[in-house]
Structure formats: structure tokens, C-alpha cells
């Protein structure tokens, strides 16, 4: 029985020998249950062991295998060959990030922004262990839960033209996580984070293209988080006019 084959174009870049990236074509045996990530693993095991890509969990929770699949940001483990076969698949590293090597990008800028928004609970006042846990009702949890599903994969940054045009913009995931902590009833760090939100590079760098929310593999809605933060920032602006710091 002759095997079904699918053609996969991979954008290659080897910093020690290439001036700029180039496309290399591979032919991979096709099965309908094969993910893009598995196809890459097949290429590395059987066709070209020098190819580099990030991966870990294979189940859309680690956020490592983000890449452009036919120009659309996707997780390699969550995209399947059957949705493209018999057409060719073209794989490129995530857009809007510098390429480290092959499909691996430099995400330092995103990580820096993520750290800056203080994505952790800052309690209003420290509680002693003996005072017990911080309690929260299901209603209070519902206010932020959606935004807490982010896995930091960076697909939304690859989808954001405003980040592409000016990477000073804080960007979708960092702002969605900022909203997640600001909306948490146990958190008291809103004032610190609003300083980031209020800047030009904060929420005001967003023009509501909305593609970030479309590509998110975890159904987080960064565009909504940013719109809600714009409302908060406007309130903060009004308060700031009457009560300057």
C-alpha cells in the first residue's frame, strides 16, 4: 500500500550560517490524526535532525509550540494535518518576534512585559497563616476566571498588528493577565498596575483589531480585557483630574 504524503514548507534560519531565513520543503507521511507538532517530530527523527522547534506537553497547556501555520498563529499540537491535507502546509516561527533559530523565537520582550504587570496576587495587607485562607465566592471568581486561562504561548502577540508596528505596546496577554489580577477580589495591587495601564504603551496602544481573541487557543479574550481596562483607565483619568497625586 502506498502511503499518503503531505508537503510541509518550513522556514529555516540557522544563525551561524544563514544571512536570512529560507524555506525548506519536507514530505511527511500523512494520517488524519497527526498534529503539526507530530509532523515536525517526524521530520526531526527521519528527515533532518538539525531542525529546531520548541515543544513540551503535546496537549495545549504548556504554550511552547506556537508557530505560524499558513500565516495564522497556532499551537503545533492543537493544529492537525487533516485540516490542510491535501494542500501544502507552510510553517513559520511566530510573527512579530525575532527568530532565534528555525521555528524558535526570542520571547524575552513578552516575558519582560509579563513580569512588569506583576501577575500575582498582591494582598492588601499580609495575613498571618493562623488567620486562615483568603476566601472568595464563585461570583467573585467568575469576574476573572476567563482571563486566568492564559498559557503565555504568545499567539496573541503574533496576531497583534499594533505590537508589530510598535513593540513598546504592552500587548494582549500581559494586559489580559493584568486585568485578571486587578479583577481578583483578593488582590490589592490595582493602583500599581493602573500606572502601566494608563500609559500610551499600556491599553492606549490598542486599536481594537480583535484578532488576539480569535487566535487564542484557550479562549481567553484579551481584546475584551483591554476594552474593560480602557474604561477603568478613563475612570482613573477623571479621578486623577480632581485628585492629583
Amino acid at each position: 500500500m502506498s502511503e499518503l504524503m503531505i508537503e510541509i514548507d518550513v522556514l529555516r534560519y540557522r544563525p551561524e550560517m544563514d544571512e536570512k531565513p529560507f524555506t525548506q520543503m519536507f514530505e511527511v507521511p500523512y494520517t488524519p490524526d497527526m498534529s503539526i507538532l507530530e509532523a515536525l517530530q517526524y521530520i526531526k527523527d527521519h528527515l533532518d535532525s538539525t531542525i529546531s522547534f520548541r515543544w513540551s506537553c503535546r496537549m495545549a497547556i504548556c504554550g511552547s509550540c506556537g508557530m505560524m501555520v499558513n500565516g495564522v498563529p497556532k499551537l503545533g499540537c492543537k493544529a492537525f494535518l487533516r485540516d490542510y491535507y491535501p494542500k501544502k502546509v507552510s510553517l513559520e516561527p511566530l510573527a512579530n518576534f525575532p527568530i532565534e533559530r528555525d521555528l524558535v523565537v526570542v520571547m524575552d520582550d513578552f516575558i519582560k512585559k509579563l513580569e512588569e504587570v506583576k501577575p500575582y496576587i498582591i494582598p492588601e495587607k499580609e495575613k498571618c497563616l493562623s488567620e486562615g485562607t483568603y476566601q472568595q465566592t464563585p461570583e467573585q471568581m467568575a469576574k476573572f476566571k476567563q482571563f486566568s486561562m492564559c498559557i503565555n504561548c504568545g499567539l496573541c502577540y503574533a496576531a497583534c498588528p499594533q505590537y508589530a508596528l510598535d513593540n513598546k505596546f504592552t500587548g494582549p496577554a500581559a494586559l489580559a493577565l493584568l486585568a485578571r489580577y486587578n479583577r481578583d477580589s483578593r488582590d490589592g495591587g490595582e493602583a500599581q498596575r493602573m500606572k502601566i495601564v494608563n500609559q500610551e504603551e499600556g491599553v492606549w496602544g490598542c486599536t481594537f483589531v480583535g484578532y488576539c481573541s480569535v487566535v487564542c487557543p484557550k479562549d481567553v479574550d484579551p481584546a475584551a480585557a483591554i476594552q474593560l481596562l480602557k474604561v477603568e483607565s478613563s475612570k482613573d483619568y477623571l479621578i486623577g483630574m480632581f485628585k492629583p497625586e
Partner: peptide, 20 residues
């Protein structure tokens, strides 16, 4: 990676125009 000096934040006037 953490920065040693405290960053200064500049408030944008965009809320005025965004409101309109």
C-alpha cells in the same frame, strides 16, 4: 532580568479622545 531602577510611568491623555 529585573530592573534595578524604578520605572517612571507617563499617563496618556487618550481617555479624553477615546471618550469622544
Amino acid at each position: 532580568m529585573s530592573e534595578t531602577t524604578e520605572k517612571t510611568y507617563k499617563r496618556s491623555h487618550e481617555p479624553v479622545f477615546w471618550g469622544l
